[in-house]
Design a protein around this nucleic acid. Structure first.
Lengths: 189, 189
DNA sequence: CAGAACATGTAAACGGTTACATGATTCC
DNA sequence: GGAATCATGTAACCGTTTACATGTTCTG
C-alpha cells in the first residue's frame, strides 16, 4: 500500500511521468525511505488513474505521459498521512550488515566500517550537492526538498559518527571476532 | 536472500529456536534493520537445515527445536558480509511519511513531527533500557549487542534533532502546506 | 548513423504478509 | 480449570524483483 502513497506524495509536489518517478526512486527517496522499480511504478500509475486519484495531465513525445494528482488523490494522501502508523516492516540490507559485524574478524570488520564511512560520506555530499543544485535551479527549497535532504544529511552523519566510534570499540575489545571462521573461541558444536 | 543471512547472523551469536528468533525480529532488529514474521522464519530454518548451514542442536519441550549454525553456515555468512553491497532496496514507511509532510497543513505537519519526537524518544529509551538489562544479565556487551544498540541510539537521536529543526522550519516558512486540501495556492489542474 | 538516454510496458518467479490451524506448558 | 504464553507449522494472497520486450528522440 505504501507505494501508492509514495507516488501520490511525489505527484503532489509536481506532475511527473513514470520515467521521472523511477529516477526519483533510484536517487534520494530510494536510499532511505522507499524504493521501487519502473516495472512496479507503471502498473501502479495505471491503477491510480483508474481509481481517479491521478490523471494524465499531458502526453508528450516518445509516448511520455505526465501524471498529475487529483483532488481525490490529494485527499487520500492527506488522510493516510494523518492516520498514525506504528513502525511498520523496516527493511535495510545495509544496516543489517552492520548488525552482523561480530561474525567477522577484527580487521575485516574494521574494513567494512571504513567502507561505511566512505560510502556515507559520498551520500552526504551527493545530498548536499543535489540540494544546492535544486536551490540554484530555483527548485523547491521548501517542503519535501529541504526537510528530506536535511533528514538524509543527519542520518548519514550519525552513521559516520557511529562507524568511527565502532572502529574504536572493536580495536579496544579483546574478545571481538569470536564468531569468525577458524577461531579457537568458536567451537563448531 | 537477506532473511537467510539475518538468521545465520543471529544464530552465529548464539543458538536459538524459531520462536526466539521471531521475538528478536519483533524487537530491536525489526525496527531498524530487517523485519520478518514467524511464518517466514520457520520455512527458512527448514531450508537452511536442509542446506546444512544450520542444524538442530537440541529438541526441548513443546516441540521446541534449538538451531545452531554450522561451520558451513558460518563460512557463507562471512562470505556474504565480505561481499560489498551497494545500498539495496530500502523500505521504511515511517521515513516515507516524514518525506511527504509538505502535503499537510502547517499545524498538521507540526503534530506529526511532535508524534515523531515522542515515538523516537520512546524507542531511544527502550533501546537504552534493553541494553542495560542485557549488561545486567551478563549478556553480550560486545559484538552485535553494543554496536547495534549504539547505532539505534544515534539514528533515533538524529531523527529527534531533525524533527525539532523541521518544526522550526515549517513555523518560519510562509509557503508551507501548499499541497494541502482546499488551499488557494494549489490549483486542481 | 550509431550509441546513449528517454520512455513505456508485460510476465514469470520470488519474497513477504495475513490468516488459518494446532497443540503443549506454565501460571494463577 | 482457564488464560496466557510458548511453540510450530501451512496456504492463499499480494507486493516486489528480474528479465524480457519494444520503440523514440537526442547528441556527437
Amino acid at each position: 500500500m505504501s507505494l501508492r502513497f509514495a507516488l501520490l506524495g511525489l505527484l503532489n509536489e509536481r506532475p511527473a511521468s513514470g520515467y521521472d518517478l523511477t529516477r526519483r526512486f533510484a536517487q534520494g527517496i530510494g536510499s532511505y525511505a522507499w524504493d521501487a522499480k519502473h516495472s512496479q511504478i507503471y502498473p501502479e500509475l495505471k491503477k491510480l488513474t483508474e481509481a481517479g486519484l491521478i490523471e494524465i495531465a499531458e502526453e508528450g513525445a516518445r509516448g511520455r505521459k505526465t501524471y498529475a494528482i487529483t483532488a481525490d488523490g490529494r485527499a487520500q494522501l492527506r488522510q493516510w498521512l494523518l492516520t498514525p502508523a506504528g513502525n511498520a516492516g523496516v527493511r535495510n540490507e545495509y544496516v543489517l550488515r552492520l548488525f552482523l559485524l561480530s561474525a567477522l574478524r577484527r580487521d575485516e570488520a574494521r574494513t567494512i566500517l571504513e567502507h561505511t564511512i566512505e560510502y556515507s560520506t559520498e551520500q552526504l555530499q551527493a545530498i548536499t550537492q543535489d540540494f544546492q543544485d535544486s536551490v540554484a535551479d530555483g527548485g523547491p527549497t521548501r517542503g519535501h526538498g529541504a526537510l528530506a535532504a536535511q533528514y538524509g544529511i543527519r542520518v548519514f552523519q550519525a552513521t559516520i559518527d557511529w562507524a568511527h566510534w565502532a572502529i574504536e570499540q572493536i580495536d579496544a575489545d579483546p574478545g571481538f571476532g569470536h564468531g569468525a571462521d577458524g577461531c579457537a573461541t568458536a567451537p563448531t558444536r
